[in-house]
Design a protein around this nucleic acid. Sequence first.
DNA 1: TAGGCCATCTGGTCCT
DNA 2: AGGACCAGATGGCCTA
Length: 188
Amino acid sequence: MKSKGKAAKQSRPTWSDPEPELEPDTEAEPGSSEQEDSEASVRIGCSWRGSLRSREGKRQGGGGTRRRRHRSSTTKERSIRRLESNERERQRMHKLNNAFQALREAIPHVKTDKKLSKIETLTLAKNYIKALTSIILDMSGACLPAGEVPSEASAAKLLQCYQKHLEEEGEEGLTQYLTHMHSLSQHS
DNA sequence: TAGGCCATCTGGTCCT
DNA sequence: AGGACCAGATGGCCTA
């Protein structure tokens, strides 16, 4: 486990550590637009970078870019909300990383000291799924018309079958089904 | 030292 | 309204 300089990141200015010359509360004027915030408050090297990001082409629900306002909230309240959001985001990313770890353990790969990166994990998982799919299609080759090679269409059929069983019987039922299929293929 | 990878912060958007 | 999701930015660590 390599150590990361996590503590050092606290030195970055954040909502929880607002800079005095940029009092966020000044925007709480009724009727004042926060648009200017998203367009103008860019400070290279700090956390303000609204105009560096073009949200064009991204999801916009008709109203365009508009930051949600908390008119009555104080700097302290916003600071608390920001910290809570940060914590939730951290937890979310931890969950995501746990899922990546589970995926790493589920896919066979050449064991090295170096752990698989996320992109490597996803790529290997995709390849593994493809390999398993082709194996299953080979196993069920007898079901195909004579001479027909397992194709993408049959792979799609397999996926359809998988989803159907998943919906009807849940993961446990699906596992039993796959086990059954496996034993059948061994007897053939 | 450059580049890859990662954790974290952040603010916009979507969803409930 | 508030949480979840997402992607950009930033900076630290590691390796070739």
